[in-house]
């Protein structure tokens, strides 16, 4: 049930990511055309693209946590026995969860700190840069808690949080 909800949410997020990546590409491409061909570049283009990149980056970080696809060194891990591996899986998820909670906490602090401040070219609120930290932290928390639960109570037979 929870798994299904998380999967649905992830599908929506993947669509969102595809759209942002396409937009980033288009804005940068159009910027070249506007500058080179029409001699009138957009002042806000770089800034807006970078805001998008930040959102894109933090969401994809969270999704890779769900899928267990972040790069890690496995040559030691793969030599341990099943019990030790399970223990390490648990440790990994708990450490990442702790880190994610800090992301939410300090992301919120930065959002509060930057209230009323704007990016110089686009005039977008500066806090837009720090929101992704909160969102990503929350997503990673959901995903890792779900992994911990499945590790402790492996009812479904599906080893969530396992690599690959």
């Amino acid at each position: 049930m929870i798994n299904k909800k998380l999967d649905q949410m992830t599908t929506v997020l993947n669509w969102f990511l595809g759209i942002i990546l396409t937009l980033m590409l288009l804005i940068t491409f159009i910027q070249v055309v506007l500058r080179y061909v029409f001699n009138s570049p957009l002042i806000w283009a770089d800034e807006v693209t970078l805001v998008m990149l930040t959102w894109y980056g933090y969401i994809i970080i969270a999704i890779l946590v769900k899928e267990g696809k972040h790069i890690s060194l496995e040559f030691l891990y793969s030599r341990f026995n099943q019990m030790t591996k399970k223990g390490l899986d648990l440790l990994r998820n708990i450490l990442i969860l702790g880190f994610a909670i800090l992301m939410v906490y300090f992301g919120s602090e930065m959002v509060i700190n930057t209230q009323g401040r704007h990016l110089p070219a686009s005039h977008l609120p500066r806090s837009l840069l720090y929101f992704p930290l909160i969102i990503s932290g929350l997503l990673i928390s959901f995903y890792t808690i779900n992994h911990v639960i499945t590790l402790l109570f492996p009812r479904t037979g599906r080893e969530a949080g396992d690599r690959r």
Partner: peptide, 12 residues
Amino acid sequence: FLGIPIAFSLGI
């Protein structure tokens, strides 16, 4: 070496 993803190893 404990298999924590490199990115999170750096962060933690």
